[in-house]
């Protein structure tokens, strides 16, 4: 191959692939609106807050960012909004071990940011992030779960609480909760957390049936 032929191959080949990229870009941009909910003014205002505080300087979103703090793609599915709001305004007030500093995020800013994060959680991401294998496998292969354990899973308690090393660090570790709290406390706390822990940001579960609350309490008591 002569130098001239190599040069022409480089130039025209690259142009060819660039044209394909442009075509795919047009196609993608046309398809995007159907893959996410409509963007309201509040969602856009929340995105502006996201940029203002350079959130991406620590967090990732859609998996892209700084890998220093948790990914925010599905955060509104995992944490109660009331918790998120208080955390954003003053992280250490709801989680003393939090690394995130207090930036002076106002109440309105926090609400807009949560609306934006809620929008992100509804984007069709081709199944990312995948459900952890262990979470999917729990209850299969002959390991029968108690109804309390099933409720613990379906309500997403492990998004915030940890048992035997599995689960979140947002709320208290429940590995030995059965030897710390009694049945009456646990049952009442499920119905109205704030009545027992004044600053609690845990959502109440008063909407559950008596039977379900009992099942959950049984499970907690068993964690000695």
């Amino acid at each position: 191959m002569s130098n001239k032929a190599a040069r022409n191959l480089f130039i025209f080949g690259s142009l060819f692939f660039f044209v394909i990229l442009v075509i795919l870009t047009f196609d993608t941009l046309a398809k995007l609106p159907k893959r996410a909910p409509e963007i309201t003014e509040e969602v856009n205002a929340g995105k502006m807050v996201w940029h203002k505080y350079d959130c991406i300087g620590c967090h990732t979103i859609l998996g892209n960012g700084s890998y220093f703090a948790p990914d925010m793609t599905k955060v509104t599915e995992r944490k109660p909004k009331e918790y998120l709001k208080q955390f954003l305004m003053d992280p250490k007030s709801v989680n003393p071990k939090a690394s995130m500093p207090k930036f002076g995020i106002t109440s309105e800013e926090a609400e807009k940011l949560i609306a934006f994060l809620d929008w992100i959680s509804k984007v069709d991401t081709n199944g990312w992030p995948p459900k952890p294998i262990l979470a999917t496998a729990a209850g299969v292969a002959g390991r029968e779960l108690t109804s309390g354990q099933r409720l613990y899973q379906s309500l997403g308690c492990s998004n915030c609480h940890m048992i035997n090393g599995i689960g979140g660090t947002t709320g208290p570790d429940l590995t030995h909760v059965g030897s710390k709290k009694d049945r009456v406390w646990l049952f009442g706390h499920f119905k109205d957390p704030k009545a027992y822990v004044p600053n609690s940001v845990m959502p109440g579960f008063g909407h559950l049936s008596e039977q379900e609350l009992n099942d959950l309490t049984d499970y907690m008591i068993a964690l000695k």
Partner: peptide
């Protein structure tokens, strides 16, 4: 140029 696609797996862009 088309390797750019490896950044478009999970950000809300189409499956192709």
């Amino acid at each position: 140029i088309l390797g750019l696609g490896h950044h478009y797996y999970w950000i809300g862009t189409p499956g192709y």
